[in-house]
Amino acid sequence: MSADTRNSLRRETRLCHYGQPAHPGPANPPIVRASTILHDTVESYRDTKRRRESDDSVLSYGRRGTTTAHALMQAIADLEGAEGAWLFPSGVAAISSALTALLRPGDHLLMVDTIFGATRTFCQDILSEYGVSFDYFPCGTADITSHLRSETKLVFVESPGSQTFEVMDLPALCASAHAAGVLVMADNTYGSGWLYRPIELGCDLSIIAGTKYLGGHADVMMGAVSARGDAAARLRKAVHVTGQTLAPDEAYATLRGIRTLSLRLERHEGNALRLAEWFAMRPEVLGVLHPALPGHPGHEIWMRDASGSNGLLSVVFAPGFDAEVLLDRLTLFGIGSSWGGFESLAMPIDPERNRASLLDYPKEAKIVRFHAGLEHIDDLINDLEAALATL
């Protein structure tokens, strides 16, 4: 399929055809495992090494990916509306690699105060040891100018925010950062390139933990960084120099998961909204955190910039309610890290209580993050009702 033909198709159709080889051929690109790529002549070998310097789809060496990974890279770049995408063995590997590609000793990093916990840990424990300083800014910031230093090189955002889902005005924030010559990078795992496209909203880089919705079946570990402009060139160089790669089997499983991304997210969203409505009526519940709910911080911006929501919601329980006993007595909601797979999940969380979405709740209130899976919503609600009836 030519690029012009692909670009004329709706996004749902493109999901079904990413990476397909010329016909006759398999519907899905096969898994190609290889380290060494053989040549018949020295000239062929030299020509391949020359062409790969400007084209990541050239099959040259396993560390730079086989055709399986190349198909996934092209798919994610298209999903994100980027010039290119690069693959990593986990979401945290993608985050840490992007940060080290863009920052040098003496540089300053700004991060939103609702950023992913593992990102905070990397910056505190590793990045700071290399002479990079960092600060946090409030998630409601639209003009970043007052937070910038002369040595600030990057602003790292996550919208909706991790665990509490505050939404940022990315177009306004990016405009103020770019006016000062500062790059903006987004953790886009929530939107996963389908619901939300930070690069279209002005960001220079967008990160997805494909472990979640891209793979979609709780059996893949991978991350991706999409980028444009100078940021893409810097990231690409760092990826190749440091040997970052993704195994062909993981690339295949992720590409296969992408085929059903839009359908799965529709079901996740519908189930999550039904759960949000149900929780909001319960006497044990003080509030429900979800960007699609009116009154949630940044709700109007979310309605403007996003095409939908995913399966996540966090529930704030009244003080004295034993949320952990509730989780222990659930049958359909597993207790575990991550989210984005087919299964429903629940886990206690303890985000910073100065976040915008939590200011009106008592600090002793317990919070649980739920992920609404693909089960029938009536069964999920029945499970919750049965567990609550035992308390």
Rank of each mutant, 00 (worst) to 15 (best):
A172D: 09
G181T: 03
T211M: 01
T121R: 08
L380E: 11
V220P: 04
Y190D: 00
D328M: 06
E83Y: 06
G210E: 07
F165P: 06
Y190S: 06
L205R: 06
G216I: 04
D55Q: 06
D169S: 03
G257C: 01
G91L: 05
L59V: 15
P297D: 06
L109I: 10
T121K: 04
I208Q: 07
T390R: 09
E166D: 13
G257S: 01
A22L: 05
H268P: 02
L87G: 11
S314M: 01
E43G: 07
S57D: 15
P319D: 01
S307Q: 15
L327C: 12
R14K: 15
T189E: 00
L384C: 13
A232D: 08
A75N: 12
P283L: 00
D78W: 14
V285S: 01
R50S: 07
S309F: 01
R14A: 14
S262R: 10
L173H: 02
D125L: 15
A209V: 02
P171W: 06
E324F: 01
L9I: 08
A22F: 02
L293K: 13
C203M: 09
E277T: 15
H268V: 04
I126L: 02
L170Y: 00
G106V: 09
P297Y: 06
F321L: 04
A85V: 03
I95Q: 14
N28P: 07
N310M: 05
S206Q: 07
H178Y: 07
T152E: 01
G65Y: 03
E364H: 08
D219N: 14
G216H: 01
G257L: 02
V225I: 15
M303K: 15
L170W: 03
R234H: 12
R267H: 03
E343L: 08
V92I: 13
G257V: 01
H290M: 03
F333G: 08
F116I: 09
L391R: 10
E284G: 02
L72Y: 11
R282N: 02
H240P: 00
H240I: 09
P291D: 03
D230G: 05
A101I: 12
A232R: 14
G62I: 02
G193V: 14
D360S: 11
A231D: 08
E375I: 04
L148F: 01
M221E: 00
S96Q: 15
L330S: 09
H371S: 11
S146Q: 08
L154C: 12
S337D: 03
T68Y: 06
A253C: 08
F137A: 10
L273N: 10
